[in-house]
Design a protein around this nucleic acid. Structure first.
Length: 219
DNA sequence: GCGACAG
DNA sequence: ATCTTGTCGC
């Protein structure tokens, strides 16, 4: 649970991002293939109710090791660039319930591929101190060339001259995903992990599991 | 001034 | 995010 104060206005949220962005650590000390990976997602209903879910999978067989959920009421409106302030509270509450500390967090959204280089994956990584990266379904910032159609192909995502992420094809001929580092992990490593998590579908198995669980927890 | 805008 | 049927392709 959160006892401290949480930003209520856009101004306060921007100030928090400005204050925490310097704490992002791009050093990568992760083993090439961490034993377990944890996916997170949030589902919404039409009454301000939200449900967060976290699912830890064994990297080798992609089997569920542990999973938790947390229901709450949205405390911050959706605002492009600030949506972490909406999803972070329930996500942190769900993470705190885990018995085993996650090796790396796979977020449903962006990390550095953000206007101020501090998307959900960075914010979550900084607050938990855990390695984290983002896998977004759509572009938020930056421009890029179309990656080749073969799974594994990628193109850099560039915004204002900065390489903020990669557009990665996880399945042959299927719309690519947007991968970006969040905290304590490099982009190349994040892409390799993403491919390890997408043997069959476009989105990481972690995200798929968390999505399924969050929706179920909403009822 | 006119779009674009993670989930 | 979420609302939703049929339809194209392997």
């Amino acid at each position: 649970m959160h006892t401290g104060d949480w930003p209520t206005t856009v101004e306060e949220a921007l100030a928090v991002q400005e204050r925490l962005r310097g704490r992002v650590d791009l050093t990568d000390d992760l083993p090439e293939l961490p034993p377990a990976v944890t996916g997170l997602d949030v589902a919404y209903d039409d009454a301000g109710g939200i449900a967060a879910a976290v699912v830890t999978l064994e990297t080798a067989g992609l089997t569920v090791v542990e999973q938790r959920t947390h229901r709450a009421q949205a405390v911050f409106p959706y605002e492009p660039g600030l949506f972490a302030f909406r999803e972070l509270p329930p996500l942190l509450a769900a993470l705190e319930q885990l018995d085993h500390e996650p090796g790396v967090l796979v977020c449903d959204g962006h990390g550095l591929a953000h206007p101020r280089r501090f998307g959900l994956a960075c914010h979550l990584g900084v607050l938990t101190g855990l390695p984290a990266f983002g896998v977004g379904k759509t572009r938020f910032v930056g421009s890029h060339a179309a990656p080749a159609s073969a799974r594994g192909s990628s193109e850099p995502l560039v915004d204002a001259g900065d390489e903020v992420g990669a557009v990665l094809r996880t399945q042959d001929g299927v719309k690519p995903v947007y991968v970006s580092a969040g905290h304590r992990i490099g982009l190349a490593h994040a892409c390799r992990l993403t491919l390890a998590l997408t043997p069959r579908y476009r989105l990481p198995e972690t995200t798929r599991q968390a999505d399924r669980l969050s929706r179920a927890a909403l009822r």
